[in-house]
Design a protein around this nucleic acid. Structure first.
Length: 459
RNA sequence: GGCCGGUUGGCAGAGUGGCUCAUGCAGAGGACUGCAAAUCCUUGUACAUCGGUUCAAUUCCGGUACCGGCCUCCA
């Protein structure tokens, strides 16, 4: 069996991945808060973990991997959106959720086994708070329930911070009811108009960190294998999740491997609305196919900061053109059943080295181009597709890759032009032939003469 | 102020204590083509900086510079 290595934030190094139960490998990844359309950063993390999910399924069998990614549908940002737009909260969260799922599908991100919504696990959250109060890790103050960080000796170990460091330069406004400024909210009161649920501490709503602890515990157990998310979540979100879960369930491990994906930047700096370099997924997908964005993400190791540029996006599109060209040539050859290239598997198993894996796809694509006999072509095609599938790439039909899209192309008209040009070529009227080719080129139709005749594709 | 991470050829981006070599894009030359396109072949250019360890460092260690991120909501 392939051995997977992962960079574990907890240990700050790469280590061998050993699941608690190889017949039930469990992974939890923090999903989005559904208050607005997903931006590029929201896309990068799920794509990263989608590759890990695919790898785990390949290694352990798809029936033996349980992947949970939550949806945060109760949050102050949602409340704010509600106040700004006047739209019902439910409408905001449902619409945003649908957008998110659609974006993920376009990016060929497999649906996790569960996408739990926070509002469906309020009961579990309340139980968790009760547990923490009962064992002395939480206290009530001014209508809130707070986690008592001083009650936990190891607090700060995930993010590598000591309490002193955290307080030294922190720009936190400290609520005066906190025993320690680092104490965080488990449950907070809601006013009558705000979303809330009845609880032993009155009408209120959960703190953000609590959601993930409650949902992961319910769906994956108190100890599971991998917990993922964006690197920005390490502190405070994951640190606090860790604290809650470990204190609520003494003796359990919570997550054994913490995997974090590097932050997305645009043109070398953090993507932010104030810098004017903030992009939503659907905005970017107007300029390039979703697969190009996916390939672009995977072209940089997940742990590194990822720099998005439109130049890079265009380049990824060109690379896919190359791959699909190779596939287009053998569109009539059925791919032979194949296993992924072992080097691709090994590259991914080595802490998801997707750039290295992609370099092998280039080699496989070259092999396919060079293959002459149908048997060889079938073998190479199968190998390329099986390998690419592990990365969630090359799932589209080669012909529709080049000819699909907005569907505004009149294929018959193009074919007629090609016939006209073929006649001109036969008469050695190359001026006319070139004229026709150039006219089509201006319409975004590229012609290619092959021994089997002329084919066309969209630019 | 504290804590992380990075600095590789024109660009993107892996990797490695010594070997002929990442890979891709772009560039150059060639094959094929009426000319192109696609494809194939050949090819140039690199490891921020200063020290240290070593027979040997782009790779390990330390300093410096620069860049980015986190410490508040954030994927």
């Amino acid at each position: 069996m392939t051995t997977i290595y992962l960079h574990n934030t907890l240990k700050r190094r790469k280590e061998e991945f050993k699941p608690i139960d190889a017949s039930n490998v469990r992974m939890y990844v923090c999903g989005p808060t559904v208050y607005d359309r997903a931006h590029l950063g929201n896309a990068k993390t799920p794509v990263t973990f989608d590759v890990l999910y695919r790898l785990l399924r390949y290694v352990y069998g798809s029936a033996h991997v349980n992947y949970v990614s939550n949806i945060t549908d109760v949050d102050d940002k949602i409340l704010k959106k509600h106040q700004e737009t006047g739209k019902p909260i439910r409408e905001i969260t449902e619409q945003t959720y649908q957008w998110y799922v659609d974006d993920m599908a376009k990016l060929n991100v497999l649906a996790p086994n569960h996408r739990p919504r926070a509002t469906e696990y309020i009961g579990e959250m309340i139980e968790l708070v009760k547990l923490l109060l009962a064992n002395g890790h939480a206290y009530e103050a001014a209508g809130h329930v707070l986690f008592d960080v001083d009650s936990m000796p190891g607090y700060g170990s995930l993010s590598g911070r000591s309490m002193k460091e955290m307080l030294a330069g922190a720009r936190i406004e400290v609520a005066d009811y906190k025993k320690n400024p680092a104490d965080f909210v488990l449950w907070k009161p809601s006013s009558p108009g705000q979303p809330g649920w009845d609880s032993p501490w009155g009408y209120g709503r959960p703190g953000w960190h609590l959601e993930c602890s409650a949902m992961s515990s319910k769906l994956l157990g108190n100890s599971f294998d991998i917990h993922g998310g964006g690197a920005d979540l390490i502190f405070p979100h994951h640190e606090n999740e860790c604290a809650q879960s470990l204190c609520a369930h003494p003796g359990e491990k919570f997550a054994n491997y913490w995997v974090h994906s590097g932050m997305l930047m645009v043109d070398g700096v953090k993507m932010s609305k104030s810098l004017g370099n903030f992009y939503l997924i659907d905005e970017v997908l107007e300029k390039a196919p979703a697969e190009a964005l996916r390939l672009l993400f995977l072209g940089t190791h997940y742990h590194q900061p990822f720099n998005f540029t439109f130049e890079g996006l265009a380049q990824s599109k060109a690379v896919l053109d190359k791959f699909y060209n190779a596939l287009l040539r053998v569109k009539n050859v059925a791919a032979a059943p194949a296993e992924p290239d072992n080097r691709v598997v090994e590259a991914l198993a080595d802490d998801l080295n997707t750039p290295l894996a992609i370099s092998y796809l280039h080699e496989l694509s070259n092999n396919l181009n060079k293959a002459e006999s149908p048997a060889e072509q079938a073998r190479c095609k199968g190998e390329l597709l099986a390998s690419a599938d592990l990365l969630g790439l090359l799932w589209q039909n080669a012909e529709s890759w080049f000819k699909g899209g907005e569907n505004d192309t009149d294929a018959e008209a193009v074919e007629a032009k090609i016939a006209e040009r073929a006649a001109a070529k036969k008469n050695k009227d190359y001026a006319l032939a070139d004229k026709i080719r150039n006219e089509l080129k201006e319409q975004g139709i590229l012609l290619e003469d092959t021994p089997q005749g002329t084919t066309w594709k969209k630019a």
